[in-house]
Amino acid sequence: MVKELVSVIAKRLVDHPEEVRVTEKQKEHLIVYELSVHPSDVGKVIGKQGRIAKAIRTVVTSAAVKEQKRVAVDILS
């Protein structure tokens, strides 16, 4: 569910939604979602001073609390 949430949010923000990729990596007690987008869309996903990236992380963390998971979102360039 969280992976889909990251994907849906990112696709709404970018100009090239077909190039949005979200991969899930399991670490010890943490699930890391790696978000990759078209190179021209990286700034749109990060936002000014990282505000959009922080908002995405906040929403995803809140959703993961319901599933009792610890998550992180990494934005790959």
Rank of each mutant, 00 (worst) to 15 (best):
T23S: 13
D15W: 05
R21C: 00
K44D: 02
E34N: 14
V8E: 10
H16Q: 09
E19L: 11
D15V: 04
R51M: 14
K25Q: 13
G47M: 03
I56V: 13
E18G: 07
T23P: 01
V22S: 00
E18N: 08
Q68C: 10
K54Q: 13
A72C: 02
S62G: 14
A53W: 11
T61R: 15
R12Y: 13
K66N: 12
V8W: 08
A64K: 01
V65M: 14
V71N: 00
I75C: 04
H16R: 12
A63Q: 05
E67A: 08
V32C: 02
E28Y: 03
A64V: 08
V71Q: 04
V32Q: 02
Q49G: 07
L76I: 15
H16M: 04
V60F: 06
A10S: 07
V8S: 12
V20A: 02
S62L: 13
V65F: 13
L30A: 04
K11F: 02
T58R: 04
P17N: 10
Q68V: 11
K69C: 01
E18V: 09
Y33H: 03
K48F: 10
G47H: 08
M1W: 09
L30N: 08
V59M: 07
R57S: 00
E18I: 06
G43M: 13
S7R: 13
K48A: 13
K69H: 07
V65W: 11
A72V: 02
I56T: 02
V42H: 11
G47K: 05
K27D: 08
V22I: 01
R70K: 15
E28W: 05
V73K: 00
R21S: 08
R70Q: 15
D15Y: 07
A64Q: 05
V32K: 05
R51L: 12
P39Y: 10
S77E: 15
E4D: 11
I31L: 05
V8I: 14
L5E: 02
A10V: 05
P39C: 06
S40V: 14
K48Q: 15
I31E: 00
L13G: 03
P17G: 08
T61W: 08
P17I: 06
P39T: 03
P39Q: 05
Q26E: 14
I31D: 03
T61Q: 15
Q49N: 15
I75P: 03
M1S: 12
H29S: 12
G50M: 03
T61D: 15
I52H: 09
L5Q: 04
V2C: 04
H29L: 10
H29G: 15
S77M: 09
K11M: 07
R21V: 07
L30F: 11
S40R: 14
R70I: 06
I75Q: 06
G43L: 14
A55N: 04
L5Y: 02
K66I: 14
K27A: 08
K44F: 10
V2D: 01
L76H: 07
P39E: 08
E18Y: 02
V22T: 00
E4G: 15
I9G: 00
I75G: 01
A72S: 14
D74Y: 08
K27Q: 14
A64E: 09
